[in-house]
Structures are given as structure tokens and as C-alpha cells.
Design a protein around this nucleic acid. Sequence first.
DNA 1: GAGTTACGCTACGACGCGTAGCGAAAGCTC
DNA 2: GAGCTTTCGCTACGCGTCGTAGCGTAACTC
Lengths: 208, 208
Amino acid sequence: MQSRIPSSLPRTGRPRSAAADAAILEATRAALVDLGWSKLTMGDVAARAGVAKTTLYRRWASKNELVVDAVAVLFDELELPDNGSLAADIGGVVLQFAALLNRPETKTALMAVVAESTRDAPLRERIRTSIVDRQKRLVLEGRARAHARGELPLDADPAAAACVADLIFDVVAGAVVHRTLVSAEEVDEAWVDRFTTLLLGGLASVEA
Amino acid sequence: MQSRIPSSLPRTGRPRSAAADAAILEATRAALVDLGWSKLTMGDVAARAGVAKTTLYRRWASKNELVVDAVAVLFDELELPDNGSLAADIGGVVLQFAALLNRPETKTALMAVVAESTRDAPLRERIRTSIVDRQKRLVLEGRARAHARGELPLDADPAAAACVADLIFDVVAGAVVHRTLVSAEEVDEAWVDRFTTLLLGGLASVEA
DNA sequence: GAGTTACGCTACGACGCGTAGCGAAAGCTC
DNA sequence: GAGCTTTCGCTACGCGTCGTAGCGTAACTC
């Protein structure tokens, strides 16, 4: 979300242009749509944003970090809809997530930055805080709501509950990502229904 | 597995060196370990393989296809162990898959080529036949074995059964990949146990 | 005003890409 | 063997991107 290069409190001198930040991130998303991850260049982004290339490098050390920040804001759109039941809530959020992954920007960028993050710990941490944790929050909220509804038993052991939440997160996010990007097939309502049935049946077993 | 450039039936002239093919793929894997996907260069691979750069381009049109072929053979190692029960079989194959994803070659390469494939249909097809279908076969074998054991009800509708198999595949592969590469946490036996419990419980619901 | 920082611009060396052209090597057919 | 065909190693090249340096100017604080 923030620039990686130290924006740390220079309260004197000319301030950085917030408009330039916004223009750069917007230009990055546009370039992702037009060119995809691999053909995106820093020079092209700078030109689209109407900004000098040097300005870009003053804020982001690498293409990886720039793209993470550009895509991260899209994940703010994800919400947990209150559809009345746990099954309907899961279906709603899965459809949202699938729609997000079908956007050309995220489609080409998400896997690429994850691939890079396997050899770049700071990038991995940035992805975690900017993207992953925002998704995981939905799982926690969904479980809390299900507890309130009495659809799930209350947690006996908090540590075990955290493990289960992590498991659910990897299963849901992983399945949708894999279906969309690897199998390259559509996440339609029929698939969501089957998946929700599977997940709820599994939850009954694992929460025991 | 095969070179993309037409190896199509030149039955006269000097034949292509099979040793060079093997050396190139081996060198590609070594380069992936040392440099990772993004810093891997065609020139470096050629030098490692003791081969001219032009030779490399005669067989693979791009880095993407080369890496897919180099990594694909690793997926041949995956087998469905007969551990006596469906739960144990799932656990075994999940651990194998997780171990494969923990290798530095696959870790950095797999997500990268998938990311590229979102904008490259031929590459997507190559990944499907070289990698994805080899994994999916394990799901089909596992289900067949479970049917033989009487652990799962026989398929009433073949079309529906295929949908369920696809679902299971995306859930299993997606969850392991997400856990390993996105959450960046270990797939240990405790996680496998929880996951297997979840999946089996879900199967009971979805197979009805 | 003086000091400080951001910005746009230009230019630069370094590097990887992908190709062309050459002579030599390795196979096949007759 | 001779002759043909294809591959191979090598060198060299134009092209594009990278990331940085240097400069003059603009914007903001005290």
C-alpha cells in the first residue's frame, strides 16, 4: 500500500505528489491489462502515468513491489455478505473472489508475484500484509458469524481453532485460485454449490 | 516433454543430439535452483549445458516452454501409494505433492509458468498435458481404488462423477499449493490429518 | 529569503534477447 | 567411398530494458 522507499517523515522540502502515486498505480493496472506481467516495463508505466522514470524508482525499488501495491487495493473490494446462512455466505464470498481473479490485472499479476516471493522474503511479507491477510480476515468473520448463528460449535481450544481457520483459508482460496488459473475453468454457481457442500460437510467432521 | 520446435520427421541429415536435450533440461533445473525463475537466462542455461545458445533456440521458442519441460519430468515421480485406506492414500499423495513443491526448482517455476499461461493459450495447453493431467490421474485412480474397497458409493451419473473428480482435484492441489507457496507454511502431518479429515467429511456430503 | 526535498529530463553503461552467417561435424542414401 | 542434408558451435550484431547519475527547476518549511 505504501511506497517501499523510505517515505519516513521528511517534514521539510517539497512533499511527494500523492497524485503521482495514484497515477502510477492506475497506470500499472492499465499496463497489466494491456501487456500482462512479463511484458510490463517500468518505462511504459512511467509514460502512461505521465511521470519520469526516475520518479518511479524513487518510490518502488522493483517491479514486483509496484505490482503488489497496484493490485492490493483491488482486494479491498472483498466483503463478507450476510446471506443468512453459512453456506450462502461462503458461496457469496467465493463468487466475489472468483470474479476478482477473472479480472485481467489480477489474473496475470497474482501468480507472478507469488512466484517471485518464493525467493524474496520482504516481498512475501508485503504480499502477506497487503493481500493475504485481507482475505484471511473474511474467514475469521465468517466463522464468528456462524458461531453467533449457532451453525458451528464454539471453539473449545483457541489454538486448534486458529489451525482450522488457516486450513479453511488455504482450502477455499487455493481451490478457487487453482480452478481459475490452473484448470482455467469457470467458477459458476454449480461449482460453487458443489464446493460449498464439500466444505460444510468437511467442517462438520473437522470441528468435532 | 518434447521440443516445441518441429522435431517432425527429418529422416535425413544429422540427427539431433538426445544428450543435448537431457543436458539442457538438467541445466535448466540447476539454473532454477541457483537463480530462480526471473533471473534465469537462456545464455546461462546454454553455458551450463555446454551447448551453444543457438542450439537452445532451435528446440525451444521461449523460456516458458523450456521451463515447463524441465519441471514436468519431476511430476512423474508422483504415485498413488496403496496405504490400505482412502484416508491414508490421500495423506500419502498430499505429502508427496508437498515435498515436490518444496523443491526449489518447482517452487519458483510452477507459479511463474502458470502466471504466464494466463496470456498464452499454447503454453496453458502444454502445462495441462505435461503437468496438470498427470496429477489429475492420481485423483481418478484414488477414487477407483476407493470404489473397489467400498469406501465410496459407486457413481450413479458418470457426468456428475467427473465434476466431483474435478472439484476434488482443484481442492487438493489448490490447498497444498496455497499452503506451501502463498501462506508459506509447512505441510506437516498434523496439517495433512486435518485436511484429510475435512476432505473425507466433505466427500460424504457431496457424493450423496 | 535560505535550506531541503521532489520532479522532469537526458544520457549512459550494462545486460539479456533473439537472429544471422559461417565452417565443421554427423548422419543417411546411393 | 561421394554427395546431400541437417545439426552444431561460434561470433557478431541490433534491439530493448534496466537502473543510475547529473542537472536545472519546482514546491514546500522555517
